[in-house]
Amino acid sequence: MVRDVSFGQYFPGNSIIHKLDPRGKILMFIAYIVIIFCAFNYASLAITTAFIAFVLILTKIPFKFYLKSLKVIIFIVIFTSVLNLFYGAGEPLWQWWILKITWDGINRAVFVSVRITCLIIASSCLTFTTSPTELTDAIERLMKPLKAIHFPVHEVAMMMSLALRFIPTLLEETDKIMSAQKARGANTDSGNIIKRVKALVPILIPLFVSAFRRAYDIAMAMECRCYRGGAGRTRMKSIHMGARDTVSFIATALVIAGVIVCNIMIPAVV
């Protein structure tokens, strides 16, 4: 079922990674994505992989949840690595019909699969340890400079956090509506494409109607709780940079430096 996906979920905890400033986490996450795709040889790849493995251990979240989030994309990883495996240049090591495997192909396949895996683990490390509110709060603060060009920073952040809050609720609702229509003999899983699209109507219309009704209710509930936009709001969890954030920045900087040094010293393989 759709609801079982653990990707993007938050696991409350007390680890060092949980306690880091969410703004710092977002920035480091972005830096890390850049760096994985800048790792051009095995030494650099090893450094980036080791780094994320270290972070993963620090989160103290059971490994099985990371595996679950990987399960969703395992198909993409296999598909792209196989594709890369056969599209390498150079001397073939093995050949059959139009398929050939080269050292270049093997390298590409390894790099692609490791990069995607690291990417997913890194984003899981971020979302598992940062509550949606913290995340949107951090994005709101990071985007603050955009206010100068009249970008509605607070509103966008509020919309994001409401969306995150209501995704599980709407998924559950979709489930219920689907069951109800199936009980009336709706046929959702057979027929040609036009039939299938048509079969979505009895599910989508009630879903939209209910989403609008909810939106109206939520707006009223927020007003009842004295919500009047971003002006004058305070936050319970004030976020501020501390010693551990500095340490984390230094660690990330070292990894970046390491990758750059390796890239200069060792020839690229992909």
Partner: peptide
């Protein structure tokens, strides 16, 4: 499902047709 009819909790949330008549007919048409 046609022989064992099931009315869910808050069934009003499953209405979707243009008219009440057509909505009532949905299951029977199926």
């Amino acid at each position: 499902r046609f022989r064992v009819g099931m009315v869910f909790q808050y069934p009003e949330y499953q209405l979707f047709e243009e008219t009440v008549y057509r909505d009532i007919a949905f299951g029977a048409v199926n």
